[in-house]
Design a protein around this nucleic acid. Structure first.
Lengths: 342, 342
DNA sequence: CTGTTAGCGCGTTCAA
DNA sequence: TTGAACGCGCTAACAG
């Protein structure tokens, strides 16, 4: 239609130069006129190009938070393998900087076409992403954002706001109880701690806005030794028997819940994050009042789809996708567990 | 590999006879050995087959509930048009049986390959789906389910349970207030009324379980005449000035909210369904306390994707997909509006 | 800078 | 009952 050959058309379609301005113009003109849409079947059949997406995420055990993320990734991977997209995981250990750096090094040797990163240590992350940028390999952050790293997109929750909401709900019914307890974890340098920090800040914002003269206790629970944690809890409740409302800013609220159950301590409100099986069980029993969900499966799913959109279909994408802050109670939990395989 | 030609292989692949038993055996043997999977790209390319999915849904105006469903449908349609899938809408009028039947008749003339139905009148629906079944055209119900109609899948919320939750939240803080009001609509024969009915039943279940000696008022609001509705509300509040908690089982809670705002009546709790712009505005103003979301966009999106999975990629699918019962308050609304274009 | 050409894996003739 | 051959729309290598 433009009076040129298929080769020329192909060149303008893919911007691979070697085309005179005049031909280019003519072709583009025709493309517009006929509303040209590439035929995906033909592309898939003809293209021998294989795509590799690498996922840098924490090593996980069955049913923990990252296992849900992986499920989402798997589903997207399945939908995309028809398009010659392959995914590969590189796992690192939460709490080890060395492991993280090592994973980063392995990542580069894989020569991926795109990368999903659950960033952990800020400085080290910037080092990794710097090298990705040099190689022009697009990458997405999920769960925690690190700004100014040049990520194509961040997918995750607004941590501050989710803490704010947690505060509102915790304080909703029993504003006159003057004692609450925050179950927080040992301070660590990694990004997931930073996320909890932001949730805490959001929480404190609400409390400072809306609750006068409140007493806030803090209980630090390590994540190493269960027995030790129990002793800490026992000591706390001996000293503060009137505390009936508590919150944790991570998914390990079940440790507290289990302790309360064992020791028959009745709380009025107990709030935590994420739909781990242990948490769900305690929610169903009425020991946990509310869980805040952040759709780990959807995060993984979206991340892979977006990366594929970028590298396979050349679609452009927005830089931010906030996940809904799901409020989950006993009565609606069922439908959230199912929808994890969305 | 089997020592026969492609033509013969094709015949055994598609069971179109004209093949000797011996050839057939040999081919099937090889097929198994190499774990033959048809290449969808090649099938799509070779087959000139175009697919048509028809959507039988209520006629909508901008920003109403069904417009969000349509958005989801549109997004799925866009992703699928590369695969020769075309969607077409057939609209009917909510409240008119004739319009519904007419739409059903038009539907059949289109000779669709698959159908999405938002079912309205039960008997008439069964008539339509009967004819679809005869023609072996697969169909999915969304929003409201009609059992035993032979639908491939139902996508929507568990209405009873969502009503139950609404009850729990409405009664949570102020159980001692003995008067609540239900804003319900004129009784109609259609399925959407049945859905509201189920929500109401769930609500009443909670109330009967957990709230003694409560007074429940009912206010019937027609959906025709705004002025008339206002008069009804005025009359009601004159007679019952102490009522401070109310709920509507459909998306038109904004009518009540707007009335309360205009007349400066402060409610303690006002609950309704769906993220219409008017509802969102009132939620942000603090006039509506909570909205229950049912992800209309996702419903439409999933329905189309599932149908395409079936007819294009021959994947098999599960018969039920319940949508989460989203609890939406002022503080998390922002992230739900965005996620509509999921 | 441009045109030509050989497949990619399958469906579908048509001739044998 | 079978086999050979063409074309679907696009990519990529190669020859001008």
């Amino acid at each position: 239609m433009a009076g040129v050959s298929t080769g020329t058309v192909d060149r303008v379609l893919h911007n691979r130069g070697e085309v005179s301005e005049s031909s280019k113009k003519k072709v583009q003109q025709v493309l517009k006129e006929i509303h040209y849409r590439p035929n995906m079947f033909a592309i898939g059949l003809a293209g021998k190009k294989k795509y590799l997406i690498c996922c840098l995420i924490p090593k996980y055990t069955p049913d923990d938070y990252w296992s849900f993320v992986a499920q989402g990734i798997e589903q997207a991977a399945e939908e995309l393998n028809a398009f010659h997209v392959r995914t590969e995981y590189i796992y690192y250990n939460h709490s080890s900087i060395e492991s993280y750096c090592e994973a980063g090094a392995i990542l580069l040797t894989k020569k991926p076409d795109a990368v999903l990163i659950a960033p952990n240590f800020k400085k080290e992350t910037l080092q990794i992403t710097g090298q990705l940028s040099e190689r022009k390999i697009p990458f997405i952050f999920i769960d925690v954002n690190i700004e100014d790293a040049g990520a194509m997109m961040y997918i995750g929750q607004d941590s501050f706001q989710s803490g704010y909401i947690a505060g509102k709900i915790l304080m909703n019914k029993y504003a006159r109880d003057k004692e609450i307890v925050l179950f927080i974890s040992e301070y660590n340098q990694n990004s997931f701690e930073i996320q909890m920090q932001r949730r805490l800040e959001g929480f404190m914002k609400y409390v400072s806005e809306s609750c006068d003269h409140i007493t806030i206790h803090e209980v630090k629970l390590g994540n190493k030794n269960d027995q030790e944690d129990k002793q800490i809890l026992t000591a706390f409740f001996k000293e503060h028997p009137c505390v009936k409302m508590g919150i944790s800013f991570n998914s390990r609220i079940y440790e507290v819940g289990q302790y309360l159950e064992e020791n028959q301590i009745q709380f009025l409100r107990l709030i935590g994050y994420d739909l781990l099986p242990q948490n769900i069980e305690l929610l169903n029993k009425g020991i946990i009042t509310l869980l805040i969900g952040q759709r780990p499966g959807l995060q993984g799913y979206c991340a892979i789809k977006v990366l594929a959109d970028k590298i396979v279909f050349k679609r452009d994408i927005s830089p931010m996708k906030y996940m809904p802050i799901d409020l989950i109670i006993k009565e609606n939990i069922l439908y959230y567990v199912e929808s994890y395989n969305l």
